[in-house]
Design a protein around this nucleic acid. Sequence first.
DNA 1: AGTACCACCTGACGGC
DNA 2: TGCCGTCAGGTGGTAC
Length: 262
Amino acid sequence: MPELPDVETFRKYVHATSLHKTIKQIKITNTKILKHISKKKLSSQLTGKQFTETKRHGKHLFIHCTNEDWLMMHFGMTGKLQYYKDKDEQPAHARLICTFDNGYNLAYDCQRLLGNITLTSDIDTYLQRKELGTDALKISWIEFNKRYQKKRGSIKSALMDQNTIAGVGNIYSDEILFQAGIHPKHPTQQLTEEQRKKIYSKMKYVLDTAIDAQADPSQFPDTFIIPHRRTDRICPKGSEQLQDIKVSGRTAYFCPKHQNKV
DNA sequence: AGTACCACCTGACGGC
DNA sequence: TGCCGTCAGGTGGTAC
């Protein structure tokens, strides 16, 4: 689930529900999600504080806290957030639960425990340490063009490389390449400037459109491939059968008619 | 600097 | 019904 549009939707959700409320209690039900911080330290740092601001970089969500730290959340493959009042609305795999003084809770739910949470005092330092690339929605054409001129390997894996640009994962890379009409295995270095430009503009279009649809595939335009990927497997531009192949170990879906190979 | 493979995890699904 | 392999929208480490 969580690529850039999903995480941006989570960010807005936290912003709309969880700011400026005092945290009464922190509950951590599984410490595997904690990175470089103990359960005790995280609870004590957050209890009694409030969240005041939200930021996102690629697939990373940062929530500012009145102790000046940022609570960092990464969602792995199965992470999500839920704001709720009654315990019966608590999601099944809630790993971190913040209870506010208004009686509501914000739960970080992560079935497969592949996500992680930590505290950081400075976002830029954190991003540098992780060597994350520029956010996919913030990167300029100049920088994108420069990076992808030099980049080797298939275009799909280049788009998914978080050190090159941050935020695009397996499904949105499929959508970007479908919209751009480029085969996922197309060698990055063999793209023309025109093709790079097309990928750049379709990347922005796909991510913006997905954010507008709150990252809900059922709200995506009829022209998107994502809702067809693992369902009817039919190309939305025609009636061709979509194909799947492995690219850098991930399953890529594409239309053999509309995405020509090199 | 690539790819290939394994590991981390849980759970859904299809085949037998 | 149960067991087993496979796969899933992520990332990090290792070997080549």
